[in-house]
Design a protein around this nucleic acid. Structure first.
Length: 659
DNA sequence: AAAAATAAATTTTTT
DNA sequence: ATTTATTTTT
């Protein structure tokens, strides 16, 4: 691609002291990466090689060289990565550079679309649908279509989720519905037409409801840049430096967005193909693999020295990933002092595995390693339950990351839905949710009333004024009106609206729907109000809920955990993090790797690679022989990822005696 | 015909 | 724990 518009760094000198600091704190490769003045840079960095560090320092170096913060755009793939990056940059600079944009692709897309929503057929107060909202919409569409779907179609498309999967896959990989079905679901070829038809209905519904789903935030952003040159130029002009982290996880659409910046901005991406673990979100490793060919003049910087782990841990990781073919050649090595070999423990049951892990944690704790420096990692959230139980039993504090989300608990979603209709009165999903909470209002009568409501200029005002004349459930709409009145009197202040929703009547609904422990749930709503107070406005609170759910889910789910705590995390959520000691549990065939088709095996192995490379000095790998854990039957044997490793990589411990 | 009550089934990973 | 399917009530 032509780079004629590329502007060099401003003439400003970063200053001797700063450069000396870079020299001192970075190695050769990192230094090159952080300071190179090239239009296109690709960083290939193994785990623990200081890739984030190099990226953060590059960012700081730009600013120190006189680049203005508003000219920098920093894109990440997950919220965790974005937070980490912001945190470190803030620390390095002393303060956060206000005008600098840093965030996930999705949140950046939302931010840009807020300003140009009309060009995407929306008003700027659009709602963002999370996955659950989308699913509810699919269900509603399938239910209202004429002619109605038969049982078989409903079961496959809605209940088993084929509809949503095909649509999102098609959109994220820039294929048609038919192409996706032919290629990936050939045994369901006869549904391609129906899925295509429902996909169009879905798109129309979203537009009517002034809503974007997650995919839209990328697709309409791309559309904006491709079809409105004046908009694209405006952002190219502004963002003279675009930096992208975790480039191996970007999908086709994200790749094209990045390409569009390359015309006018300097572009710098980093990643590691061996750590690509978001295939299920249609990550396209091709983006990073073909980058050097696409940009033949790009500067490629390799960061291969691992600073994090002992040579023993790096050796095991390296051996494991070597079973994956089609990997960019890389020579990861560690110069750290030698340590203990990783330890593999075969245990009889899941409970004993938990007890073994907790014992080892306490042992290391006695040796002076704080709990915060240790983590228990697992493939899927449900694998944590035995360990959690054991920790509770022993009174050890912990925090979980990934898996079950605080904000998607039903009562929390209910309260949020009340707020949503104030922000976007055409948010059908939110209306359906709060209306059907009322006794006497079910899906069918809501549908009838909604048809009339959406004809009004403003459904919210119509309901508040009592202009609805429902066929049924009159008392329901009356009591809904009461709650909305209370919330409406709060000047759009999210925390006060939440309180008003409670006192206005949701409290009783909560009491009725969850008679077992209403107190617990009430506290949850209180915490929600508490967190809402952090945000400047209702819109920013709602946007954050949709896009950054996982970020404060952990913090909000349990009262502020003070002091030392152990981390329990899915491997996906652990990416980019590191601990002195790491326990990878549930290394059983069927659990990890999951029993899936061959295609996914190399991705599962990369996930294992990510897991083991989180450890600095101690690595424990545990497997058990039980056939069942939770609902899922495992084949009982140890994970393929253990079996394929040469025995000299680890020490074996037979730990039968734990109970 | 629609809503409510009851019984049964179901959970990868994240934006 | 929460969604979905089935039965009972209005």
């Amino acid at each position: 691609m032509e780079q004629q518009n590329y502007r060099n760094l401003p003439p400003g000198k970063p200053g001797q002291a700063w450069l000396e600091r870079l020299r001192r704190e970075l190695n050769e490769a990192q230094f090159t990466f952080a300071t190179a003045d090239a239009p296109v840079i690709l960083g290939l960095a193994g785990p623990g090689s200081g890739k984030t560090r190099a990226l953060v320092y590059r960012c700081a170096n730009l600013l120190k060289s006189g680049v203005s913060p508003e000219e920098v755009l920093l894109l990440t793939f997950t919220n965790k990565a974005a937070e980490e990056m912001k945190e470190r940059l803030k620390k390095l600079l002393g303060a956060w550079p206000q005008e600098l944009w840093a965030g996930t692709f999705h949140s950046t897309g939302a931010r840009i679309l807020r300003r140009h929503a009309l060009l995407a057929g929306r008003a700027n107060n659009f709602t963002i649908l999370d996955e659950e909202d989308s699913r509810a919409l699919f269900k509603q569409i399938a239910g209202s279509r004429t002619p109605p779907l038969n049982d078989e179609e409903r079961n496959l498309l809605v209940k088993r989720g084929l509809l949503g999967r095909v649509i999102t896959q098609a959109r994220n990989s820039n294929l048609t519905v038919k192409e996706v079905v032919d290629e990936y679901y050939p045994y369901h070829w006869e549904y391609a037409g129906l899925i295509g038809e429902l996909a169009e209905l879905y798109a129309r519904k979203k537009q009517e409801g002034n809503a974007f789903d997650f995919d839209d935030l990328l697709l309409w952003w791309l559309d904006l840049f491709e079809n409105h040159p004046q908009v694209r130029e405006r952002y190219q002009e502004r963002f003279k430096h675009v930096l992208v982290d975790e480039f191996q996880d970007t999908n086709v659409i994200q790749g094209r967005i990045v390409d569009l910046f390359a015309g006018g901005s300097s572009l710098c991406v980093v990643g590691d193909d061996a750590q690509s673990i978001y295939g299920f979100r249609f990550a396209n490793v091709g983006n990073i693999l073909s980058f050097p060919e696409k940009y033949p003049h790009s500067l490629v910087v390799r960061m291969e020295r691992n600073y994090r782990s002992t040579p023993e841990i790096v050796a095991l990781a390296d051996r494991s990933i070597s079973f994956n073919r089609a990997q960019l050649p890389k020579a990861l090595y560690s110069c750290n002092p030698s340590g203990a070999k990783p330890r593999v423990a075969g245990i009889r049951t899941a409970d004993q595995e938990a007890s073994y892990v907790v014992r080892r944690v306490l042992e290391l704790h006695r040796e002076g390693i704080p709990l915060q420096e240790m983590a228990v990692l697992y493939r899927s959230a449900y694998l944590s339950s035995a360990v959690e139980l054991e920790l509770v039993r022993r009174g050890i504090s912990y925090r979980t990351f990934g898996g079950l989300k605080f904000f998607q608990k039903a009562h929390i979603k209910d309260v949020i839905a009340f707020l949503k209709v104030f922000y976007n009165p055409f948010d059908e999903s939110a209306w359906r949710r709060i209306a059907t909470l009322q006794p006497g209002i079910g899906p069918a009568s809501f549908e009838r009333t909604w048809l009339k409501l959406k004809q009004c200029g403003n459904p919210l005002e119509a309901v508040l004024a009592g202009e609805v004349s429902p066929t049924r459930g009159k008392e329901g709409w009356e009591s809904l009106r009461g709650i909305l009145r209370a919330a409406g009197a709060q000047d759009q202040s999210a925390p006060r609206m939440i309180t008003a929703v409670m006192t206005g009547g949701y409290d009783q609904i909560l009491e009725k729907n969850y008679p077992d422990q209403p107190e617990e749930r009430r506290r949850g709503v209180e915490r929600l109000a508490y967190y809402a107070a952090r945000f400047a406005s209702l819109p920013s609170f709602l946007e954050s809920l949709a896009l950054e759910e996982s970020l404060f889910a952990g913090a909000a789910a349990s009262p502020e955990s003070e002091g030392d705590y152990l981390v329990l995390s899915t491997i996906h959520s652990a990416k980019g993090k590191e601990w002195e000691a790491v326990f990878v549990v549930g290394l059983n065939d069927g659990h990890f790797p999951r029993r899936d088709d061959e295609r996914n095996l190399s991705e599962e192995r990369r996930l294992f690679y990510v897991a083991v490379t989180r450890a600095r000095r101690f690595l424990f790998l545990t497997t058990y022989r039980d056939e069942y854990r939770g609902w899922v039957a495992s084949t009982g044997g140890p994970s393929l990822f253990l079996k394929e490793l040469p025995p000299e990589c680890y020490d074996v411990e037979i730990a039968e005696e734990y109970d």
